[in-house]
Amino acid sequence: MSLLDQPSSSSLSGGGTTRGQAWGLVGLLAAAVMAWLVFAVWPDWLNAILISKKAFVSAILNGITLAGLYFLVASGFTLIFGLMRNVNLAHGSLYLLGAYIGYEVTNRTGYWLLGVAAGFAVLAIVGVVMQVFVFRRLEGDDLRQTLVSIGISIVAADLMLAVWAGGTYQITTPEWLDGALTLPIITAVRSNGVSVFLTYPLYRVVVLAAAIVIGVGLWLMLHKTRVGMMIRAGVDDRAMLQASGVNVHAVFAIVFAVGAGLAGFAGVVGGSALSVAPGEDVRYLLASLVVVIVGGMGSITGAAIGALLIGLAEQIGLVYFPTYGIVLTFVIMVVTLAVRPQGIMGKAR
């Protein structure tokens, strides 16, 4: 990051442009190409290469909305790691438990929003309980904390299988979230001159909006509030924060509550967009691990960038080379580890 931004005195191509300007130009060009790809009516040769404009633009949009979901899960994961050096491998279980609770509450009360709120609240409490009764006892012992969290995830997966069995659940979304939006993007022009516009499920747009709002909210909390200040101080130097008279255990509990609550929230929102079934816990744990490794441990902005990269890679891979799509995700991870081991936004330690 800092390397890329620093204007370099040595000229790149001899034309007198600085490195920063060159990168800016590349960025502008990429943005222009992207805008053209999205808004222009495609010529036939492009349709032939990329299947169809509808497929391409949908893959991009789906990648972005999936990124929103990954961000919700990974932001809690990265916060907890950043502050407590605790790789909580039970984070995926929190997601799945949130989804099941959201399903039960929605099904019984008939109010989806109540389900979402319950998913957040119950999991926030579970998070605090986990922090106070399990992780606090093992403080400073990273390896044992990690091993215990694996144990918790295995026990939790079997308990959930016992209660909710192996079936696939679909959380019912309310009427006002159903249906599709017509976007001002022309995908094709029929032979009679009528333009075909792209339609996109409204619910996914709402998921994306929720992720953005929560991301901005988290950023504001971290940078504009007193608690956020303490958390950031704790990420940088926990001992010094403790020495200056802050009750770090209270800060830890708050972070764990927020992190676990976000996982539960993502569970309900994600369970409504896709579905709830055993195995989801591992899938989201893996996704958030990759997102956090790519984005940089402990950074919210990093989680957002990582989620965007992984979400887009997954969806584009699924459309254009489905069999090997999963490889793309890991290629991104390997390249990041090789070039910038601390992650895109991570601080070198």
């Binding site: 509808k54 789906n62 899938r283 969806q315 489905p322």
Partner: peptide, 20 residues
């Protein structure tokens, strides 16, 4: 013909790629 991996959750991109 679209072939998707087992356990794939998000089919919307696959659906979009089906010819109209």
């Amino acid at each position: 013909k679209s072939w998707v991996p087992i356990g794939n959750k998000d089919f919307s991109s696959v659906i979009a790629a089906i010819p109209e």
